[in-house]
């Protein structure tokens, strides 16, 4: 292996190298966020007491697929993608995920929201890693104006890009998994696969009350604003926020008791009715087999090609 390759570059190119991609990403994030929010319904006007669970009506291949096969296949594939260690297979994985997205015909705005949620963490890697990765033999380092301490290591950039590609590929896969069936059915499938039934019930209950408490918090904060409260960087704000959270807890805990009493009064014995009857057909298994082979092929490509 060769030693570290140093390429000298003037300082202004560093600015170019950093500022232009950063600016491009920022502009894109802002624009995409606007697009994504426009396509999902405005938050305040929605009636939160009726949770907008994905209705899962559709006729695509993934909508008809047995939910148990779908969960197992997509989870195994996610882990397969997470185990990739080179950039090229990770890029191929993004391609595969995008194809699945098109086949499943899921809402593009929701996928965008998912991607936006991970941009912060992923961008941290993209910005920090080229500068912080120690230089090994065979690395190419761009040095600016002879400042040795500020080397832009291309291997670090490649590593960060691999991580980003894997994160994107997995995040994109989640939407076909979750929005091609109603949530209760997905959770039912999960419990039929051996997860305790309580898990599904707890997710549904939390989801249902999440919106109630969000509404409560919203009412409380608008009350505070009407009384002249403005958020600033001072102790008074922190005290107000502390009391706000305390009040939220007091109200929610009292509500918890009433909810549980009401559930028992209606005969709750630790079970909800089954939301759907699941039947396993040959083509479900066939689709799973094809998909898993694709995942295995990706790993093989990752391991053997290098």
């Amino acid at each position: 292996m060769a030693d570290v390759i140093n390429i000298q570059m003037p300082l202004w190119q560093l600015l170019l190298l950093l500022l232009i991609p950063l600016a491009a990403i920022t502009i894109m994030v802002v624009w995409l966020r606007r697009v994504a929010y426009k396509h999902s319904a405005p938050e305040e006007k929605r009636d939160w007491s009726v949770p907008p669970l994905a209705d899962g009506s559709g006729t695509s291949l993934l909508h008809c697929w047995d939910v148990r096969c779908k969960i197992v296949t997509i989870l195994v594939c996610s882990f397969a993608i997470a185990s990739l260690s080179h950039l090229e297979p990770a890029l191929v994985a993004i391609g595969v995920s995008l194809i699945i997205l098109v086949v499943a015909r899921v809402s593009f705005a929701k996928v965008l929201l998912r991607l936006l949620a991970i941009t912060g963490f992923v961008c941290m890697f993209l910005v920090v890693m080229p500068f912080s990765v120690p230089a090994h033999n065979g690395d190419t380092v761009l040095v600016f104006n002879g400042m040795d301490w500020l080397g832009f290591n291309l291997r670090g950039l490649r590593l960060a890009a691999t991580i980003a590609a894997k994160a994107i590929a997995i995040a994109v896969l989640m939407e076909p998994l979750l929005s091609t069936a109603p949530l209760p059915v997905t959770l039912h499938g999960l419990s039929r696969l051996g997860a305790p039934e309580m898990v599904g019930q707890m997710v549904l209950l939390s989801y249902r009350y999440l919106h109630v408490f969000r509404h409560e918090a919203w009412r409380m904060s608008s009350g505070m604003q009407v009384r002249g409260f403005r958020k600033r960087t001072d102790l008074a704000t922190l005290r107000a926020v502390g009391n706000f959270i305390g009040m939220l807890f007091v109200r929610s805990f009292e509500r918890t008791e009433r909810v549980f009493d009401a559930m028992r009064a209606r005969g709750y014995r630790g079970r909800f009715p089954e939301p759907a009857e699941l039947r396993l057909r040959t083509r479900d298994l066939l689709l799973a087999a094809v998909w898993l082979t694709a995942g295995a092929a990706l790993i093989a490509y990752d391991r053997i090609a290098w």
Binding site: M198, Q201, M202, V203, L205, S206, Y207, R208, Y209, L210, V212, F213, R214, E216, A217, K231, R232, T233, T237, L238, V241, F244, I245, L248, F249, S252, F253, R255, T256, E257, V259, F260, M263, Y268
Partner: peptide
Amino acid sequence: LPKLAVMTAAFFVASLVHVPFG
């Protein structure tokens, strides 16, 4: 467990609160 699920919702909402810092 059902009560814990409802309380989780409360904690979730509390974790959405943003506090200005500079």
